[in-house]
Amino acid sequence: MKISQLSTFIENRSGRLRAACEALAASGINIHTLCLADSRDFGILRLIVADPPAGKAALEAAGYVAQLTEVLAVEVPDSAGGLARVLATTDAAGLDIEYMYAFSTAPGQQAVVIFRFSDPDRALAELQRRGLNVVEPVKLLQG
């Protein structure tokens, strides 16, 4: 299953990241994990949140530009070589990764890697066919 990721544009100015987080907090939206990609004078904040459409509405109400994009969450063993094996699989499938980031749900056991593939539908089919555990949104958001 694909997961809906919330992303927003953040200027590289003091207080802007905090204000975005406060906007989500004010709407009671929990952030499960996030990744901030930055360039010289702006950043793009990508978030996995409990309620992505509500998160998008909250950010827009606070004046941010926000977007929902489809990503895949893949379970990876939290041990040496875990990620390398997953990437070997995506390589073998010829999948194009736009970006990725990881978080650990149960340290020492399982980590989850969020992948943004250029073609999420094909990626989902390929990964499942090759036996990787693509996490369901419900399970991820409970984790």
């Binding site: 990721q5 992303s7 544009f9 990609a37 930055d38 793009i44 990508r46 530009v65 994009t69 970006y99």
Partner: peptide
């Protein structure tokens, strides 16, 4: 950056 110009890719 308006919604039509925004992308989540740097």
């Amino acid at each position: 950056v308006s919604p039509e110009f925004f992308s989540d890719r740097i």
